[in-house]
């Protein structure tokens, strides 16, 4: 008898509070599996956001720290600089990272802080009840734009992975999704690569994971998966946006 798959050692036994079909659970376990496979569960320090994943510190089986809303990259900067040998990651949603915490993430990337950010983009504010986020798509309905987001009023949605990839301190940026097994495998590979580049001390690494929010999108989990594929991927294209090797010492 051989175990083909079981719950990752990187997750605690705590029951997840997420809604049925929420992709947070899948993304949690990919991060947990990567930490387990790299053998860094004992040394990793994670930083939690505010939002749906605010209780992530209960679920990851490594040291965790909660941060004020949007400030996870600032807290992670402090942790990484005082514990340079510990792998550090932040786990943030789009309300946290792309809205209130846009300055923190941008400057952390600019400084090339050597931690990994897992950015969960579900195009809406989940915990607060489905308000428009900076990542909400044009035409997408939310409680604060009941007729759909318009470009005239709210501008175009922000593509964080592309934006951060313009900064020299960011060495790796990739966008993935977890709607089916092939995409899930790619997402896990991207998260693993981000951690490996961090462990090699190369710089700031960023993985954006497109996620569904069945509850606030008002769909079943399966319908939400289809909606993500049909609407989000055309605007937020999947794939590696930036992957540069460690800066070489200058030849004089």
């Amino acid at each position: 008898m051989a175990i083909v798959y079981q719950k990752s050692a990187g997750l605690t036994d705590k029951e997840l509070h997420y809604c049925p079909g929420c992709n947070h659970g899948i993304i949690h376990k990919l991060v947990a599996e990567v930490m387990d496979e790299l053998g860094i569960l004992d040394t990793t320090i994670g930083v939690c956001p505010v939002g749906c994943s605010v209780f992530a510190y209960n679920y990851f089986n490594c040291d965790m720290q909660e941060a004020a809303h949007g400030r996870a990259p600032a807290v992670a900067t402090g942790i990484k600089r005082t514990h340079p040998n510990s792998p550090v990651f932040t786990y943030q949603g789009d309300g946290d990272l792309a809205s209130i915490g846009c300055a923190e993430i941008t400057h952390a990337a600019m400084r090339g802080e050597k931690f990994t950010t897992i950015f969960v983009n579900n195009a809406i504010y989940g915990m607060t009840g489905g308000q428009m986020a900076p990542t909400t798509l044009i035409g997408q309905k939310a409680t604060t734009c009941p007729l759909g987001r318009t470009k005239e009023q709210a501008g175009m949605p922000i593509r964080m992975a592309e934006m951060l990839s313009t900064l020299d301190g960011c060495v790796y940026a990739e966008r993935v999704c977890v709607t089916d097994i092939p995409h899930l495998n790619k997402a896990k590979a991207a998260i693993k690569k981000a951690f490996q580049k961090q462990l090699a001390g190369e710089g700031f690494t960023f993985v954006e994971v497109l996620s569904t929010c069945p509850t606030n999108w008002g769909m079943t989990p399966l319908k939400a998966k289809e909606w993500l594929t049909d609407n989000m991927i055309p605007y937020y294209p999947l794939g590696c946006i930036k992957d540069i090797d460690a800066p070489k010492a200058e030849v004089k």
Binding site: M1, A2, I3, V4, Y5, Q6, K7, S8, L11, E15, L16, Y18, G21, C22, N23, H24, G25, I26, K29, V178, D180, I181, L184
Partner: peptide, 20 residues
């Protein structure tokens, strides 16, 4: 076929797959 696809995608990690 013990591919574990169900277990891999389960958000709540409640599925264990074994093969003999």
């Amino acid at each position: 076929i013990a591919c574990a696809s169900c277990a891999k995608i389960c958000p709540d990690s409640i599925i264990t797959v074994e093969k003999f």
